[in-house]
């Protein structure tokens, strides 16, 4: 798996960004979420991974010894997941509101704020 993960990450990145390139709001948001997975896994993998060794200190020990997974990236990813959730939840509701106020699901029709006024 260690060797497959980079490819999986690549696929997720590619899929996520390709979804963003679609014209539909909903695909945009799904793309953003998949990008989030991709970067969490990226962070996870690039800080090296260890199989089946959670960083839990056994009841009879006071320290972790032998092999164990690096707890720090886990903590970071946990924070990132939660933060990402906050942002994504907001974004999901935003596209709903966007759909209601803009009356469209088409990204290519949302160009009015950039328009030159003259």
């Amino acid at each position: 798996m260690e060797d497959i993960l980079p490819f999986l990450i690549g696929c997720l990145y590619a899929g996520g960004i390709y979804l963003i390139f679609h014209r539909s709001f909903v695909k945009l948001i799904i793309g953003l979420i998949i990008l989030g997975y991709a970067s969490n896994l990226f962070l996870f993998t690039i800080s090296r991974i260890t199989r089946d060794a959670p960083p839990l200190i056994p009841d009879d020990a006071t320290q972790l010894t032998e092999t164990f997974a690096d707890p720090l990236p886990q903590a970071l990813i946990l924070t990132a997941i939660v933060i990402g959730f906050g942002l994504q939840a907001f974004a999901i509701v935003l596209i709903k509101v966007g759909f209601k106020t803009l009356k469209t699901d088409d990204l290519d029709k949302t160009t009015s704020t950039d328009r030159l006024d003259n």
Binding site: L28, L32, L35, A91, L94, G98, T101, L102, S112, T113
Partner: peptide, 18 residues
């Protein structure tokens, strides 16, 4: 929730999340 606000925020959110 103004129309232009919503539209602007969608762009702002997307690019910044990326």
């Amino acid at each position: 929730n103004g129309k232009s606000q919503v539209e602007a925020t969608i762009k702002y959110v997307t690019i910044n999340i990326v």
